[in-house]
């Protein structure tokens, strides 16, 4: 029993750095894009980014007009490259963010400008 508990503790400590490492290499960017009005637009961007070796996959949200680009581990594209790929595909980049857009805010946390 003692050996089992020690193993569990050891596994717990081993898994912490692994989890941190995954977070650190989980490169994702979120791009706000104007002109995303149909599935064909989304499909076009999927094709364009699919040709980039650094990109694992992308997700297009037609409701929020946000493209989520997931990079392969340890790889990424420069923001300027992302912007140029999207612009060249016929759409307009509004903003590129490196953090998840909306971590649900409480009422008290919503900014009042």
């Amino acid at each position: 029993m003692k050996k089992f508990i020690l193993t569990l503790i050891a596994l717990t400590f081993i898994s912490i750095p692994v989890a941190h490492a995954q977070t650190a290499t989980n490169n994702v960017v979120y791009v706000d894009v104007n002109g995303l009005v149909c599935d064909f637009c989304a499909r076009a961007l999927e094709k364009v980014f699919g040709k980039q070796d650094e990109v694992a996959d992308i997700d297009v949200n037609l409701d929020t007009k946000v493209i989520t680009i997931n990079y392969k581990e340890g790889q990424s594209l420069e923001d300027e490259k992302v912007k140029s790929l999207i612009n060249d595909a016929g759409y307009n980049v509004v903003n590129i963010r490196h953090e998840a857009p909306d971590v649900v805010l409480n009422d008290s946390e919503v900014s009042h400008e």
Partner: peptide, 12 residues
């Protein structure tokens, strides 16, 4: 030829 495109947040 695409002569002009207007990309808006909710329309094109």
């Amino acid at each position: 030829n695409l002569l002009k495109r207007w990309n808006k947040k909710d329309s094109q």
